[in-house]
Design a protein around this nucleic acid. Structure first.
Lengths: 226, 226
DNA sequence: TTAATTTGTAATATTTCTGTAACATTAAGA
DNA sequence: TCTTAATGTTACAGAAATATTACAAATTAA
């Protein structure tokens, strides 16, 4: 499933068109033709994104928007506003009331689809890259290669896993226990001091003269990539 | 500071106009007139948002965008694309290459400002939770870093815990016994006067000349952050 | 099998942190 | 003003944490 999308829009023809096409693209879609109803259904449905009409018979889009932003469960629900008006004033109000994007009717389904993708991409950052980059350090997961400043670097398997681990969460400080837990194969018993030695080896490999140290020691806490 | 914004745009007049107005609104702004240069400067500047021209003399906006998205430090940097073209095709490409929003030239500064606010609002609520902020003092729990007026400060583990403690309840006055109880590991026996020394060390570290004292002594009661 | 590489540990060196004591200064009441 | 209790400051000796090195066992490559 690509994601769940909820639509609140009173023009049935638009709902039908959009819902049909989105479902064809693999989304799970639900909708409501009115504001108050829609708010309730939406909270049950728990969508990943909301398409919201600006002008509704009962509630204005802005009111709905504000209601949603006040609910801690939906504070960060991405919202794309559908508006018939082209006036800039309205656009600004919409954006300021906490909308992530808007699109003016009539719109092509292609453009809507692209905007949905863009907004969704930001809201869940699942990363499928096989290259991890940090500063001038680059690690290729499938080729098992490491580069510093475009120069390839040789490191052993353990140091590779260690570096890969650091690269998935740069800047964050990890304790030796956490590092052991994740970088070493399950249920191995190694001294926690052993990590110091591997850190040293990794440092020696990735440090190029003149370039700054990349692994930071945080006394009493652990290590991090900076 | 509201945030740091970087601009990559080759029309100097636009840069000037936008930069000036954004600075008036309280942002810290830096800019570059060309793509390759801009990329480098941007990574030094570490902005919270990028305004990126679609058509540049050397690199296309999309290329820049892709480059940024591959670098783990800037994976989630919000980008707003500035485009002269109105064609829908371009818009779609832009959105799909990982841009968060776009705006078509010529645009009013009001609209740009509203879009910036909207995009910034969404960006990275995770980071915020890890940070304790009081006045111009900032402590990042998972990166184990402390800043005063945006300048990083080195402090030892005990001073870090002490400051973290004060930051979770600013203004409140704590007795030495309470501080001992919470900041020191269980069942340690340390003289209560020892705290005075750590307070002194903390004060020395976080005090910048010209800036006001942040730790207040309450005679016969204890200390607090003010 | 042999050679080369990798790995974990222990021993040692180095760095940084911590608590305390001794002395200095300050604040507040008599 | 003097006295006294509380807090500020400083220096220093262990203590604790980390860095470095060397080496033997284990693993892998040749």
């Amino acid at each position: 499933m690509k994601g769940k999308i909820f639509i609140i829009e009173d023009e049935a023809s638009i709902v039908q068109l959009v819902q049909h096409n989105l479902e064809k693209e693999g989304y799970v879609v639900s909708s409501s033709l009115n504001g108050n109803e829609g708010l309730k259904e939406l909270k049950k449905f728990e969508p990943n994104l909301l398409l919201l009409d600006w002008m509704l018979p009962d509630l204005s889009g802005i009111d709905i928007c504000k209601n949603i932003r006040r609910d801690s469960n939906f504070k960060s629900l991405p919202i794309i506003m559908l508006t018939a008006k082209g006036e800039e004033e309205d656009k600004i109000k919409g954006l300021e009331s906490g909308v992530d994007d808007y699109i003016t009717k009539p719109f092509s389904f292609n453009e809507l689809s692209a905007r949905i993708k863009a907004v969704l991409r930001r809201s869940d950052p699942k990363v499928v890259a096989n290259e991890l980059i940090f500063d001038d350090l680059k690690l290729n997961k499938i080729e098992k290669r490491v580069f510093r400043a475009d120069k390839e670097i040789q490191i052993g398997p353990t140091e590779f896993r260690l570096l890969e681990f650091f690269l998935t969460n740069p800047k964050r400080v990890y304790s030796r226990d956490q590092i052991l837990e994740i970088v070493w194969p399950n249920n191995v018993n190694v001294e926690s001091r052993t990590i110091d030695v591997h850190i040293r080896r990794l440092r020696q490999s990735i440090n190029i003269e003149g370039k700054k140290e990349l692994i930071r020691t945080v006394r009493s806490s652990g290590y991090s990539l900076v």
